[in-house]
Design a protein around this nucleic acid. Sequence first.
DNA 1: CAGGGTATCTTGTCGGTGACTAGTTTTTCT
DNA 2: AGAAAAACTAGTCACCGACAAGATACCCTG
Lengths: 208, 208
Amino acid sequence: MTPAHPYHHGALRRAVLDAAVVAINEVGPAAVSLRDLARRAGVSHAAPAYHFGNKAGVLTAVAAEGHNLLADALTTAHERRGDFADVGVAYVRFAVDHRAHFEVMHRPELYDAADPDVVAARARTAHVLYAGVAAHSGGPEEPDVLVAGVAAWSLVHGFTSLWVQQALPPGLGDDLEAVARLVAKVLFSHESRSLTGRKERNDDSASA
Amino acid sequence: MTPAHPYHHGALRRAVLDAAVVAINEVGPAAVSLRDLARRAGVSHAAPAYHFGNKAGVLTAVAAEGHNLLADALTTAHERRGDFADVGVAYVRFAVDHRAHFEVMHRPELYDAADPDVVAARARTAHVLYAGVAAHSGGPEEPDVLVAGVAAWSLVHGFTSLWVQQALPPGLGDDLEAVARLVAKVLFSHESRSLTGRKERNDDSASA
DNA sequence: CAGGGTATCTTGTCGGTGACTAGTTTTTCT
DNA sequence: AGAAAAACTAGTCACCGACAAGATACCCTG
């Protein structure tokens, strides 16, 4: 009846977070229930609340973790190549690979967006994103850079959101990275615009 | 006890939708309850389900209405000026003016995204958005247009999402339209190509 | 190794919610 | 007017979040 380690197995917090990620991938961030997380972790229905206070506490922890994972991914991409496109691709890839985290992160009504961990992690992300833009443009101090950074961030975030929502038109193919690079190239098209991919050709007239 | 028109007041569907918009603005789309909508409309707790089937049905109706409102706004902006920036500004303005609709629209896990009304309304939006891009670029048949359209849509949607989430950095000011135009201009700077390796200046960079 | 203190988890409970069913009232159609 | 359909009410059940109180395991001191 009771599991092998009914109490104090020492990793419930981590187990609940992992269960939350799985559950969010299944039913979305708004439909997760603490009781379901408890069942998945093999503990009683009130155990998760002990570690997280309430439901928002769980999602806050997921959001903080997600922001940190994103900042890590962007930092790695930035240090490896330093190109804006690579950072952008890393952003999109993160959203696909960590869909649960990404979804929670952009639903501030579901968690405490003022949580210190969340704020700090978000600042890390912003810093890397703007660094990529600054490297592309002249200097990091121009007012243009701020606007350009917002534009770059908007483009990447918008593309990512629409992609994961499957709200983009068909005919783009399913190669996420290739499409993302094409789109990113539109923003910074300083030289020849070789936007034409290899394949694909759509009969236009979007929608269906 | 019972209100003046307990039954058949003839406009319950509309009343529930209006109540839903108000409630979503207050507590977010995931936290609305059918029972609360019923209370706001002055009917019994099960009345909304008669018209909408279930909770997702209400949100589906809100989403469809939102998509249609957005398509209307974009069409008006397109016909009036035809410039991409104007359409983009209309997109952002819609999200701010109809925040409840906009939020529901981009939470496909909360409603039936395959609903015919939703699909049709979304197609209208896509058409206007792509028309604005096609007018800006060469012809509507090039494969470039598809990518450019996705880029434009991504930029506008991403900026809008980040703005309403208040996730954009400070220092941009609070004039939504001015900031939006600055950002939109970054995307279509084919002739001037400011902001990239070649730095040029936007003559009407009004405020900041 | 005993015993107390504390962190961790369980059990029980309460109000609220979504969905369903059955019943009641109003409107509409003929 | 009378029947049929539409619109809404009332009741019920399982589930959920939050809270309170109790039980259990770990830890530390001695």
